[in-house]
Amino acid sequence: MNIRLLYLSFKNLKIYYFIPLFFLYIFLPVLNFGMVSMSGNIENSYILVFREAEKYIPLLSFWWITLIFKEYISGDGNEVLYCIDSSGKVKLSLIAPIFLWYIIHVGVLFLGYSIFWDNVLLEFIKTVLQCFFFVSLGYMLMYISESPIISFMLLLIYELLTIFINSDIANYISIFENGNRITMNAIATKYLGFLLLSIAFLVIGVYKNKRFYY
């Protein structure tokens, strides 16, 4: 992956590049200060902080991909992007660095969190796995529906169903902790399952990506 390509892809987004950064570096910290102030002390606010974080961070992991892949999926003359790149049709080589770049920013936020709370490493691992799940699910849906924005819509619906609609099926398929303190056990069981599922989505995504022009 060429960093220059990533830079140019981001440059094409103009101000819209900064949306996730605004959420990560301004919106969430401000909200977190409010939560601490509301809860009376830092430790009491732990649940609130990480419950709110998982509402925004995984979803926003797909923001840059949505905008960048608008060119790859529905841009005029997008076929040229699938035939001049010698690395082939599969665009994981572009998605992976976008994802990594996002995770670095999430890492900075969580590094900040680690000053105030313990258990942040596990929360970070959970968040990375949630982001990975969203990205791989989004990637698969993007190449199935052939529309990044429809894919984003389906991710949004997934989040709403699993966080805000209490149904057994929704709870069963929910990747969110929704106010529970994350434990190593949950990482090793529930999140391992979701990791495998994410890999499956990724494989299906790659398959659909390969057949985008076939």
Binding site: L31, F33, G34, M35, V36, S37, M38, L48, E52
Partner: peptide, 10 residues
Amino acid sequence: FVPFVLFMGF
């Protein structure tokens, strides 16, 4: 939850 936090926190 945001308006609630802003109200209660700030």
